[in-house]
Design a protein around this nucleic acid. Structure first.
Length: 582
DNA sequence: CTTAGGG
DNA sequence: CCCTAAG
């Protein structure tokens, strides 16, 4: 377990715990100190308990670590690990960090970089009441090779580095997840500011020089000065050092540096103002070829997640952790999909994407339409284009959706479809749409979504059409009776007829009870029309409705009327007369 | 493409 | 009204 402590005061027990080596070696370089000492009560992490702004100038490095590194010939001879632990220097420098890599990977061996995106996600966690603001960091990765988890770091660490670009570079592939936890073994007020780092050697392509920090090293150095409490904790955590391979320690360190250590030049104090904690996410992608850097957290009581905070899926790593240590279980339990992850997942579904897009579009349209109604908007070309599209309605949306869905299915990049980008496509697609709105400009304000209230005249036309052509020939009816109503599709007619049937067959008693309750509902359908529908439903039985229609009919329509209207032609002509209003 | 039917 | 399977 490697702790990265934040030392604000040099008079803390940190120095005594770490020994002079550490401070001497690294403090002067004004860098972070990697601290293998588990935070203990009154330890290094107890500084400034009430401050909301914590400037972290030092990343403390445990002397034993550095010693191990320095003394380890393997390490020294390792080219890839040359700058592995570059605490005093500029992280991600000396070519160790391969800027040329698209992923911004720390590349020890480019060819070995087969790992999947390592995601670091940093989240600032909202502190609990009366507690110091916490930042817990949990570094995890998609791939199963390693898990980095930094725990209970109260603040971000300000790291003087040139890695700003690096961080940005790494951003899209990585996330740093931070989780806030307390240590079980320690008192609540204890603040660990710890990064626990462990490594696992998967023995597959792991660099030779990987044993610069061993279990013994940790033990020896560590336990000397650590309290019993701390030792207990450390022991617990050290279980994770299955194979004592810290090959990637340096990588990890550098990763952390570049990931959440901000540039010195930027005056990057971390503000943690309660609810307004900025949810900064620093990204980093690490290349730890075939090695597993297991970073576990100290045993701790996990703090509640901040709203929307989600852990990253770690899969294989979780398995490793889960079988290694109990504390790992905590890790696993804490992990849940990042919000971003969730969004992406949902966006992968064309339907969801489409729905959201549609909502967005509709919203935009409605705004424009309203603007027009209010006379506050002069239609620009763009706006007009949008407006033209609206009455086009199903055409464009459907067309768009189909295109988009197909596209999404083909390229499998549905998550790349943002409402914004989709909107552009949509508008482009709609450029050639006709402009039926000119036909009924006065109805624009009535439109809501793609719904347009059926007028009685329309219903009459529909009834006429059905009576003339029967049920099912909706396209024909539309063509002859709704030629001027481009917004009514054959499907609309069919749906409307279905609704009419339903309404006509409804129990009048119930209808009277229900109708009055609907305020501002459309004018009730004239009984004459309903009656007409009922009659037509017999002549032109609607599938599925036929049965009920027949059974209900005796009640709704006296048999006499039926017997008298058994002649379709007579009935049609008569009713046409009767319904030809407006 | 149209229809029928479910949502 | 939307969507889609089925013809």
């Amino acid at each position: 377990m490697l702790e990265i402590g934040l030392a604000e005061s040099k008079d803390s027990s940190l120095e005594s715990a770490l020994g002079d080596n550490c401070v001497n070696s690294f403090n002067d370089v004004n860098h972070t100190l990697y601290n293998l000492i588990p935070g203990s009560r009154g330890g290094i992490s107890s500084a400034s308990p009430n401050e909301e702004i914590i400037e972290v100038d030092h990343l403390l490095v445990p002397p034993h670590v550095t010693r191990a590194l320095d003394e380890d010939p393997m390490y020294l001879s390792s080219k890839s690990l040359e700058n592995c632990i570059n605490v005093g220097g500029t992280p991600c420098s000396d070519g160790y960090y391969d800027q040329g890599n698209d992923y911004g990977i720390l590349v020890a061996d480019a060819e070995q970089v087969e790992i999947q995106a390592l995601k670091y996600e940093f989240m600032l966690q909202e502190p609990e009441e009366n507690e110091n603001p916490h930042i817990t960091c949990n570094l995890s990765c998609d791939c199963s090779d390693y898990l980095l988890e930094a725990v209970s770091a109260e603040t971000f660490m300000d790291y003087p580095s040139n890695s700003e670009a690096t961080v940005r570079n790494m951003e899209y592939t990585s996330q740093v997840q931070c989780m806030d936890r307390d240590v079980d073994e320690v008192k609540p007020d204890y603040i660990t500011r710890t990064f626990a780092i462990a490594t696992l050697d998967h023995s597959t392509g792991a660099p030779d020089s990987t044993k610069f920090l061993s279990h013994d090293t940790l033990h020896g150095t560590f336990f000397q000065n650590a309290s019993l409490e701390a030792q207990k904790w450390l022991k617990h955590e050290l279980l994770l050092f299955d194979q004592q391979n810290l090959t990637e320690l340096g990588n990890v360190c550098d990763q952390m540096d570049s990931a959440f250590l901000s540039s010195e030049n930027e005056d990057d104090m971390i503000l943690i103002p309660g609810n307004e904690i900025p949810e900064r996410v620093f990204s980093s992608l690490v290349s730890l070829p075939h090695t597993g850097a297991l970073v576990s957290s100290a045993a701790k009581n996990e703090l509640p997640y901040r709203d929307g905070q989600a852990a990253l899926d770690c899969r294989g790593t979780q398995e490793i952790l889960g079988t290694t240590n109990d504390s790992v279980m905590t890790t696993k339990r804490l992990r849940k999909p990042t919000r971003r992850y969730i969004e992406e997942s949902s966006e992968t579904k064309p339907r969801s994407s489409y729905d959201r897009l549609k909502t967005s579009l509709i919203s935009s349209k409605e705004k424009l339409l309203h603007a027009r109604a209010a006379g506050k908007c002069r239609w620009s070309g763009a706006v007009q284009l949008l407006y033209q599209d609206y009455p086009g309605r199903v055409h464009s949306l459907r067309g768009f959706r189909r295109k988009r869905t197909k596209q999404l299915e083909n390229d499998g990049k549905g998550y790349n479809l943002t409402p914004e980008s989709a909107k552009i496509s949509f508008f482009q697609d709609s450029e050639l749409q006709d402009d039926p709105s000119d036909e009924h400009p006065t109805r624009v304000h009535k439109r809501r979504k793609h719904h347009r209230q059926w007028t009685h005249s329309e219903v009459a036309k529909l009834v006429d059409g059905v009576s003339q052509y029967g049920v099912g020939r909706w396209t024909e009816i539309k063509r002859l009776f709704f030629s001027t109503s481009s917004y009514r599709t054959a499907v609309d007619l069919k749906d409307k007829w279905r609704n009419l049937l339903r309404a006509s067959l409804a129990d009048p008693a119930n209808k009277n009870l229900v109708e009055p309750q609907r305020k501002h509902a459309s004018a009730p359908m004239p009984e004459s029309i309903l009656q007409r529908v009922r009659e037509l439903s017999i002549i032109h039985p609607y599938p599925r409705s036929q049965k009920s229609a027949i059974t209900d009919l005796p009640i709704l329509a006296p048999p006499t009327s039926l017997t008298n209207t058994d002649d379709p032609l007579n009935r049609r002509g008569r009713i046409l007369h009767r319904l030809s209003f407006s």
